[in-house]
Structure formats: C-alpha cells, structure tokens
Amino acid sequence: MRLALAAVLFAFSAALSGAAAAEVEFPRGSIIGLVPPEGMSEGRTFSGFEDRDKNAALLLVDMPAEAFPQLEASFTDAALAEKGIKVETRVNFPVTGAKGILVTGTQAAGAVTLRKWVLLAGNDMLTALVTFQVPESAAVAYPDATVRAALSTLAFRSAREQVEALPYTLNDLAGFRVVRTLGGSTVILTDGPKNVVDGAEQPYFVVTVAGGAPREDERGRFAVRTLAGTPGVKDIQVERAEPLRLANHMGYEVMAKGVDMRTGAPVKVVQWMRFGTTGYMRMVGVTPLDSFPELYPRLRAIRDGVEPR
C-alpha cells in the first residue's frame, strides 16, 4: 500500500514538474489559462484545449467572482449526479491565488463512458470552471496525475493583461478602473469602492465589440433595441436618439432614463454605437440620475479614447 501511494505521489510530482517548466497558455479571448497536457492544442470551436485523435477536451469557462458561492452550493454529489456525473473523489485543490475544489468521476454519454475531472476555482475577481474529459477507452493517455498537474497550473489574467488582450485600446479611463473583461471582447469599468458591478449604485461603463453590423437604414432602430437590453436597468425611456460620427465612423447616440432593477433608484443611460462594415462597437454608461451631469464629460472622454488595435 505504501509503495502504491509513493508511486502515485511520484507520478504527480513528476507531471507537476513538467507542467511547471512550460508556460501557461490562454486560449483566444480567455482570461483564464493553464499549461495543457502534452498532446493537446487550442480548441477550434470552444475556449480550451483538445486532442481530437483521442476525443479528449479541456474546457475553460470564466464567470464573475460572485458566481463562486452559488456554484459551490450546487457542486454537490447529488447535483452532479443529476447531470449524469458519478462522483468518485472530491478534494480541496491547490490553485495559486484562488480557492479550488476538484471532483473526479465518470459520466455516460450515450454508449461512451467518459473519465471526468471538474475543477471549480475562484478568487475575489473571477470564478473559473474547468472540465477535462476523455473516453475511458483512451484514458490511459491522460492518467490522473497528468490531468491534476495541468489543472494545478490554472492562472488568471491580471486586469492589465486582460485589457492588453482586447481588440481595442483604452487610452483614457477618465478616473474609472477596469473591473474585468468578458469573452475577449468586452470590458467593464467602474468608479467607486466596489469591484463588483451590481446595478447603478456606482457608475459603470461597458465597451464591447460584435460582428453583424446592421444596414445603414436600420441603425437607429438597432441602437434603441440594443439599449433596451441593458443589464440591471428596467423601465427605460428614450429621451434622444440620433446619428453622429465617432472617430471618423458612422455612429449613433441614445440617451435615456431608467430604473435600477435592484434598488429601484432612477438612473441615466447613455449609449454610443460605432458601426463598421462587418461589425460594431457598443459603449454604454450607466450612472445614478443625479450624478450624470458631473459624470457625462468623463464618459465621453472614455468613449473618445477607445481605438481599435
């Protein structure tokens, strides 16, 4: 028994040393990354890594920090069993700068049984859910020690690194600071003591880019519809909607009032959209209603400092 345990520990130590020697890889647009096991390359259709020959996949999902306690509460054996995962082991797992919980087990996928490792990790800025799966028929290529060694290298991009990975630059934060980025295309800024943007208790500014630019004659309606979906704001009443040029591009400005869904407090919303031939950029600022006159020049400064890379 002691020899068997020593062999397992040695295998994990050797795998960990090999992983530590390599550099952490961040998939395109991801703010979490790790050193993938040998034989895996970046996923073509998802955020993570894959070994197509063996049908093995390592999926990376990042979420806000506040998601961790919610996921932890539902990370029980019974809840996982409802998803078809039969838990074999559960341990607190070491992740640099974060709390980690690792579950291992199996999951039936039709006629195939998958070996599965699910790591839930989080700190005060981010939550990560990492899943490694491989068919049992190919599991010999990815032993437990190898997978654990890869998971132990999980890393979170710093705020600076997150911004550097965006497809645009922020040349003037106007006193705001970066809270986090999403999907490699969106950045959230705020000005206030809290790092979690929850409604308009403190002002926030969001920049995002997306594909699928509307036709020129549809831009106004598109801008108004998009504003209506601003998270955390209800009862939006448009006050002004008009075209304008932004950095030599055709754009659209929408000004509106609304209500904070969480507190019921009145808020002011301003949205600028910059249109390209194949996509668009959306910039939206949300502030308490009485603070808007003071904050508006700062929001415009942020807007004018956003430039495509």
Rank of each mutant, 00 (worst) to 15 (best):
F12G: 00
S13T: 14
A19H: 04
A20F: 09
A21Y: 13
E23W: 08
R28V: 10
R28K: 11
G29C: 08
S30L: 03
S30C: 07
I31T: 15
I31Y: 12
P36D: 05
P37W: 04
S41V: 12
G43A: 07
D51L: 05
D51H: 06
D53S: 14
N55I: 08
A56C: 05
L60R: 06
A65F: 08
F68H: 09
T76R: 02
D77Y: 03
D77V: 03
A79S: 15
E82V: 04
K83V: 07
K83L: 14
R90I: 05
V91P: 02
N92D: 13
V95I: 10
A98W: 02
A98D: 07
K99S: 14
T104G: 07
G105Q: 05
T106G: 11
T113S: 13
W117Q: 02
A121T: 01
G122P: 08
D124R: 10
T127A: 05
T131F: 00
P135N: 04
S137M: 10
A138F: 12
A138R: 08
A141N: 14
P143S: 07
D144F: 06
T146N: 12
L151T: 01
A155D: 08
S158Y: 02
A159G: 13
R160P: 03
E161Q: 15
L166H: 00
L170T: 00
N171L: 10
A174V: 01
A174K: 03
F176L: 13
R177F: 15
L182E: 15
G183A: 05
V196T: 15
D198A: 15
A200Q: 00
E201P: 00
V207I: 13
T208L: 08
R215P: 13
E216Y: 10
E216H: 09
R219H: 04
F222W: 09
R225T: 10
R225L: 13
T230H: 01
G232M: 02
G232N: 03
K234C: 12
D235F: 04
Q237E: 15
A241H: 02
L244H: 08
L246G: 04
N248E: 13
V254K: 00
A256K: 03
K257W: 09
G258A: 03
D260R: 00
G264V: 04
P266T: 07
W272A: 03
G276F: 09
T278E: 11
G285S: 09
V286Q: 01
D290V: 14
P293V: 04
L295K: 07
L299M: 10
R300F: 09
A301V: 06
D304E: 13
R309C: 06
